[in-house]
Amino acid sequence: MSNLNDLTTLALPSGNSLVADETASRLSLSLQGQPLIELRLTREPELRLWLEERFGRPDGQAFWAACYWLFARDPGCQRLTWHLEEAPTEALLSGLLIATEVTGQYRCERTLFWQLPQPWLGESRTGSYPQQMVISGGKRHPLRAVKPRGEVYRRFDARLGAWVSLRTVEIEHDLARFNRWQNSPRVASFWQEEGSLEKHREYLSKLEADPHTLTLIGCFDDQPFAYFEAYWAKEDRIAPFYDAGDYDRGIHMLVGEEHHRGPHKVASWLSALVHYLFLDDPRTQRVVAEPRADNTKMIGHMHNQCFHCEKQFDFPHKRAALMMLGRERFFDRCSLA
């Protein structure tokens, strides 16, 4: 794992890299070898920033880069106070900065910063999909957007020192891997989906055709290690067991590669998965999961990521724990870096 105190470079999903020269009182950032922004800093009683030089770059790009660097550098930092002579119009419109009662003073809140979808989501448009209520399977719910294809989320995890990304399942490409994972005794003991390639082709094909479930492959440094299912709770079998919101998302999780197990890896991929779902549609207020009630290890990992156990309940096939994480709690307490 990387030591954030030694951080000097941050990679961006675009392929570019932020490089910093930081002291206790100054921060200079460059992007791909070109100067981006230079700031004067004071750190007590809170972190304050004065713009020294912007090098002709757009406000939004330069201010965003500085906020990203400082929040990634210190996951405990909750707020940045900017002192600017001119109103940062673009940053104010996007929500990156908010005005204060003091003229020329603006704030960037960690809870707001991590809700901005770019650059983590690329070109996703799900969050702007209009609402129309429909009925399917006897359940009334919003009409869902067409499911995305390809990579849907990418972020460099500075604490882990690795890229964490999510892409949609490609059945022909991922079938053998999925089959191997499901036939692992460890996975089979909880999923109970072991079987042949044809059984798993049918399983994945059914979900691909289901508008309420999105199947995902989790990757570290572009190497697949996990399989996830993200579903709209309102249309799912979980809906009768709690008061499901129209945009609540649920998750099923499977880590297939043994060398990617461990609490530090779970902290990275679980926070990335939840982050993606909250960014994918800003109307999503809760992410839920229903692991087996005796899966104490997974439940413990979820507690560590701020989920709470709402209750235990009985599915026809298992005794389950209803794990829940609200949007406000996630962004208030997230330790994304």
Rank of each mutant, 00 (worst) to 15 (best):
S2V: 03
N5E: 10
T9N: 01
S14F: 03
D21R: 13
L29E: 05
S30L: 13
G33C: 14
Q34C: 11
Q34K: 15
Q34H: 14
L36D: 05
L36I: 13
I37V: 15
E38T: 15
R40S: 11
L41A: 03
L41N: 03
E44C: 04
R54T: 09
F55I: 12
G56P: 01
Q61N: 07
Q61Y: 00
W64N: 10
W64G: 00
A65W: 02
A66G: 06
C67E: 02
Y68S: 06
Y68P: 00
Y68C: 11
L84R: 04
T89S: 05
L92C: 07
L92P: 13
S94A: 12
G95V: 12
E101P: 01
T103D: 14
Y106F: 12
E109C: 13
T111R: 09
L112F: 01
L116E: 08
P117I: 08
P119I: 11
W120K: 02
Y129P: 02
P130T: 03
Q132D: 11
V134M: 05
V134P: 12
G138T: 10
K139L: 13
H141A: 07
R144P: 01
R144N: 00
K147E: 06
P148F: 11
R149T: 15
V152R: 00
F156Q: 03
S165K: 04
T168L: 03
E170T: 14
A176C: 07
R177D: 06
F178R: 14
E194Y: 01
S196R: 05
K199M: 07
L204E: 02
S205W: 02
K206Q: 07
E208I: 07
L214M: 12
T215P: 01
F228I: 10
F228H: 00
F228M: 11
W232P: 04
A233N: 01
P240A: 02
D243R: 13
V255F: 01
G256N: 05
E258C: 05
L273T: 12
Y276A: 03
L279P: 03
D281H: 08
Q285M: 15
A289R: 04
R292K: 09
A293G: 08
D294V: 01
G300P: 08
H301W: 10
H301R: 07
D314G: 06
F315R: 13
A321L: 12
L336D: 07
L336V: 10
